[in-house]
Structure formats: C-alpha cells, structure tokens
Computed example of a mutant assay.
Amino acid sequence: MSGATRAWRQFGDGPLSRVASRVYTLLVVELLLLLTTLPGLLPLVLLGRDPSNLPLVALLLVPVGPAISAALYALRQQGPDLTDLRPAALFWRGYRANVLGVLRVWVPTLSWLAVLGVNLAYSGAVGLASWWAVPLVLIAVGVTLCAANALMITSLFDFRTRDVLRLSVHFLVRSPAVTVGNALLLTAAAGITAVTSEAVLMLLASIAVLAYLRVSDPMIHLIRKEFTT
C-alpha cells in the first residue's frame, strides 16, 4: 500500500472524517428529499388547514413515500469513509428500486387516513355517534404505525407486498420499542407541523429519517437474522 493510499485510509477512518461524512450525507439527502417532494409539498404549504382538504392533502403527499424510502436506503447503505461518499447515487438507486413497492403500501395508507380523517372531522354530518371518535383514532394510529414498519421493510428488503404487510403487523407487537419510538417520532413531527408549518419539518427531513432508521434498528436486525438468507 502506497503512502498516499495509507494517508487517504487514515483520513477516511478518523473520528472527524466520520462526522464530516455524516454531515455531508445528511445535507445531500436533505437536498434530494426536497427535490423529490417539492412538487407536492409546495402546494401543501399554501393549502388551508381545513378538513375538506384532506383528500387533496393525501394526493399531494404521494411523492413523500418514495422519497423517504430512497433516503432510508441511502443512509443505511452509505458508509462513513470519506474516500467513498456517494449518497446521491445511493438515493437514486433506492428510489428506482423501491418506488413501485413503496407506492403499493403508501397510497392505500394515505387513502385510509384521508377517509378516517374526513369521518372524524364530519362525524356529525355522516351520522356517527361521538364515541366513534375513539375507535377511529385508534385505527388511524394503528394504520400509521403499521405503515411506518412497512415503509422501512420495503425500503431495505425485497419481500412481496403481502409479506411486507404481515411483517409490519408482526413487528408492531414483537418490537414494542420500535413501535413506541415511531409513535414518538410521529408525535414530534405532528407537533412541529402544528406549531410551525410543513416547511420547517421538511428542513429537518434528513435528520428525522435518520432518527426513524435508528429507531427501527432492532426490527431490521431481526428481519435480517430470521427472514433473509
């Protein structure tokens, strides 16, 4: 190994270089997340927060699923070595590989949540008793948490959609730490959006995706150990 190669290797393995590579990767992923979601999120920021807009909100959020999936793939696959940084290439590879599988999970999830949201908002108009609010909220929470598991599994593994759904429900119970962690992340995201706007949340998107990935590590480890060869 030449002196130059050894120098590059040491530079790429040091703690400062690992921090720098992580910051660089997060910045690149953030820019690509903004690029791939901007067509839907720009009108969403301008849209009024009225329950009647929920179906339109669901439609505008369709590009977000494949973008998050690509970001998960890039952050999972990218190593800390500064001599081999390629987050953009990994992002686009993940996007192309996962877009169809993610949409098969993401679009039904958005549709279900839109229907549940409209029914909650207009429960009186559709003739629902007030006590129906509790089961509808619980169903919405369950659908969202299952979708969080399913999105992670689809992004990092190559399973059939029905197997993804089975695993997402299975790990909802088997990995309570992952379930609680995802619930806290979703609560934080909802709080940021409510207090500020969707634009602020998007500026923190790559950090949020990294946190989502770290929360899901126990589930990822178990799937790799027990359901892959």
Rank of each mutant, 00 (worst) to 15 (best):
S155R: 01
A140K: 10
T109Q: 11
V178A: 12
G65M: 00
N53F: 12
L33V: 02
S130F: 05
G48A: 12
F157N: 12
F171R: 01
S17E: 03
D81T: 03
R214L: 09
I220T: 04
L47A: 03
L172F: 15
M202F: 14
R9F: 09
V29I: 08
R86Q: 13
V57N: 03
V57T: 13
S175H: 12
P87T: 06
E226D: 14
L33S: 01
S2R: 03
R214N: 05
N98K: 07
I207V: 13
L26T: 11
R224H: 14
D217A: 08
G117N: 06
L85I: 07
R104N: 10
D84H: 14
P43N: 04
G94M: 01
L59S: 10
V62F: 05
L31Q: 09
A208W: 04
V173F: 15
T154F: 04
L186G: 05
R104K: 15
V28R: 06
P135K: 04
A97E: 14
G191Q: 09
V102W: 00
L110V: 03
L186H: 03
L38V: 09
A208S: 08
M219G: 02
L151R: 00
T229C: 03
A188C: 10
L201P: 00
G65S: 00
G12R: 01
R9W: 14
M202D: 00
G79Y: 00
A71I: 05
P135C: 02
V126K: 06
L116R: 03
Q10M: 15
Y212V: 00
A183V: 05
V141P: 04
L110T: 01
T154P: 01
S21Y: 03
Q10E: 15
A205M: 09
L47E: 04
I68H: 05
L61A: 12
G124H: 15
L44C: 10
S168K: 09
V64N: 04
V143T: 13
L151T: 05
A74I: 06
R214H: 04
R22M: 09
V118H: 10
A177H: 08
T25W: 03
T229D: 15
Q10G: 09
R9T: 10
R160N: 13
A20T: 10
R18D: 10
G79A: 02
L100T: 13
R18N: 06
R174Y: 02
G65I: 00
Y73H: 11
S175M: 04
